[in-house]
Design a protein around this nucleic acid. Structure first.
Lengths: 195, 195
DNA sequence: GTCTATAACCTGATAGAC
DNA sequence: GTCTATCAGGTTATAGAC
């Protein structure tokens, strides 16, 4: 077990605080404290709150959306496998990072300008491969709808957790089971509603 | 056209600023300015930023989630009509209030404690009516999955708009058409994947 | 009720010692 | 590199005149 460098300790703390509180709600003091270092040191290494934030948001954005294009664009993988891989990977990722989607999507909505550089170099999803596969499987759905359906059904239940729990629809103890059950069902659902 | 009272002008401005920036990112100065009044007056009427926020968040929460239970609980309405009503109402509401879902869901995640009182009195969704209707329609899906599927497919596309646009999947000009097309398709999709 | 002025506090960032 | 101390600026909230 290796000790983290000071720089890495700060980034780790920044990940934790920023994803929980958002940019505006996070305080550099809290990050410093969680990193076990002094506030001055944070500025020594990263110069400003915004610089540190950009490092974290870039990382998290990539973590959340970086997998879509590689998985969907591979021509040699059958459509059914792609769906299953995407749903499985997201469910695993989000179980371990519950605040991730709401963090990214909220910052995208509130501080969209911070993403300008980031999105400029973002992999654009290539549609022709998927289009062909959908057609070959006798499916009439458009590619954007196909992708939207997968990630809506998979990601939204994580975002809506506090709501569903408080509405009495699912208990907090059963929520993981609920998500696992959905993970196993979504691929079939997607095939059904793509025809 | 009636003039708004000062109190109402402040609330209107608070709605606008809070939903765009979130609690932490919003400044009372901006709210006062947008209301066309002085900062002191805001505190004269509402005492604190948090008090004003509670009024707005309660209103918005109700606007976003208040419709679910009344629509779904009415025993005399056929299942297909319920789905269509829910999807239509949400699409209309969110077209006019794009930041609404991310605002509520983010505050729920970041400042959950503010909702404590609010959720205490929240209508719990009664499941027996829906359960019966699902069964009578030969459907095997559980009620929580049924509700989750409807609101995932309907609400998430609004939240994911900046993402889909920047990924080059849909242009900003075509997004409204995309949402309208989905609104018309989702009821069929829901029926399909509930069997 | 509404304003100006200011208090009280908080937060990001820096100076300077070690 | 790391710390303590502090600055500079911003933000919420209030005092007090009108």
């Amino acid at each position: 077990m290796e000790e983290l460098s000071t720089e890495q300790k700060i980034i780790a703390a920044a990940r934790s605080v920023f994803t929980k509180k958002g940019f505006a709600g996070a305080r550099t003091r809290d990050i410093a404290e969680e990193a076990g270092i002094n506030l001055a040191l944070l500025n020594y290494y990263f110069g400003s709150k915004e610089n540190l934030f950009k490092i974290v948001i870039k990382e998290k954005f990539e973590q959340l959306f970086g997998m879509i294009s590689p998985i969907l664009s591979d021509e040699s993988v059958p459509l059914g496998t792609k769906i299953k891989t995407l749903v499985d990977n997201y469910t695993k990722l989000l179980k371990e990072n519950e605040e991730l989607p709401i963090f990214i999507l909220n910052e995208l909505s509130v501080n969209g300008h911070i993403f300008d550089e980031l999105l400029q170099y973002a992999r654009q999803i290539s549609q022709p491969v998927l289009e062909k596969q959908l057609k070959n499987n006798g499916m009439t759905l458009s590619v954007p709808n196909f992708i939207m359906n997968i990630i809506s059904l998979t990601i939204f239940p994580f975002i809506a957790k506090p709501l569903f729990v408080s509405a009495g629809l699912i208990t907090i103890e059963n929520y993981t089971d609920f998500l696992n059950e959905r993970r196993d069902n979504i691929p079939d659902w997607i095939m059904k509603l793509s025809k």
